[in-house]
């Protein structure tokens, strides 16, 4: 197990009037090579949770293990941990500060203590991975477009060559094209470079397509932990938490109610399409089920 949380709780503003319990007794194990999606409505504690994973927040109680050792033990090198567990915050473009793109991306490796050449090499590689072409290297990051800025900021974390990459709402505020591009790059990093990915998102569609495992956080607890298909079967409970299953799930359930035998666990549009077509062709050939009522039966 790469990262392990044992009974982790966190309280904001402890012993003040503004005390808020953000996390309640979280137990969680993350293996190498996983692609995990974390969903939860605003204020559910998901951002707090991910900041525990690279030691930015110290839990009020409980233990966090990375590679088997307690990260809050005396003498543990937290800065080194952060190079292994890269965290891309929400709106990461707000952290750019250098005079040109490449120097900004080099900030991470430089903190790691690498030589200038190595830093540059890492930076170039990272920028290539997020699809920033070479003619942008000497441009001021403040002159880039929103989507470009975000990718440069992601490269800034990638350049540290992390084993685990945590992304907090990486697609917030991007147009559909920009969103697909970023998510595609994340998938590439997972598949080709074997980086463990933890993706925090509001969008059920996104996590349904990309994540292999889904964590639903509600009120500082893990409400569900399983594959997207398993989790989305609880779509009624998800609604009570202010979340929703992907739209496809709803369509499939409605079709099923109307008498079409479709696969209820389909979570992506592609799966749904195949399942509906299959059900329809079966219906045509069999053709003996109840008629009328359903618009699908002619």
């Amino acid at each position: 197990m790469l990262i392990e949380l044992k009974d982790v709780s966190y309280t904001y503003g402890k012993d003040t009037v503004y005390e808020v319990n953000a996390l309640n007794h979280i137990n969680l194990g993350i293996d190498e090579g996983e692609f995990i999606g974390i969903i939860g409505h605003t204020g559910s504690g998901k951002s707090t949770l991910i900041q525990h994973l690279n030691g930015l927040i110290k839990p009020t109680s409980g233990q966090i293990l990375f590679d088997g050792s307690d990260i809050w033990e005396d003498g543990y090198n937290l800065r080194e941990l952060r190079t292994h567990v890269g965290l891309v915050f929400q709106y990461p473009e707000n952290q750019l500060f250098e005079t040109d793109v490449i120097t900004d991306v080099m900030f991470g490796p430089k903190n790691k203590g690498l030589s200038k050449d190595q830093c540059e090499e890492r930076a170039k590689e990272a920028l290539k991975q997020v699809g920033i072409p070479e003619n942008f290297y000497k441009v001021s990051p403040f002159d880039l477009s929103g989507g470009q800025k975000r990718r440069v900021a992601m490269a800034g974390v990638l350049a540290m060559d992390p084993q685990v990459l945590i992304l907090d709402e990486p697609t917030a505020g991007l147009d559909p094209a920009g969103r697909d591009e970023i998510l595609g790059q994340i998938k590439y990093l997972h598949d080709k470079r074997g980086i463990t990915i933890i993706l925090v998102s509001h969008s059920m569609e996104d996590v349904a397509v990309y994540a292999k495992r889904l964590l639903v956080i509600n009120d500082g607890r893990i409400a569900f932990d399983g594959s997207p298909k398993q989790v989305f079967t609880h779509y009624r409970e998800l609604e009570q938490m202010g979340l929703a299953a992907p739209q496809v799930t709803y369509i499939m359930h409605r079709l099923h109610e109307k008498g079409l035998t479709v696969d209820l666990t389909a979570t992506t549009v592609e799966e749904a399409r195949r399942s509906i077509l299959l059900a329809l062709s079966m219906k045509k050939s069999g053709g003996t089920e109840e008629g009328g009522g359903s618009p699908w039966v002619k």
């Binding site: 900041q51 930015l56 952060r82 707000n94 952290q95 900030f107 540290m160």
Partner: peptide, 16 residues
Amino acid sequence: EEADKIKKAQMARGAD
């Protein structure tokens, strides 16, 4: 809050 966020983001990039 913003300063806190940026500080954490830079710490995540190894800033000291």
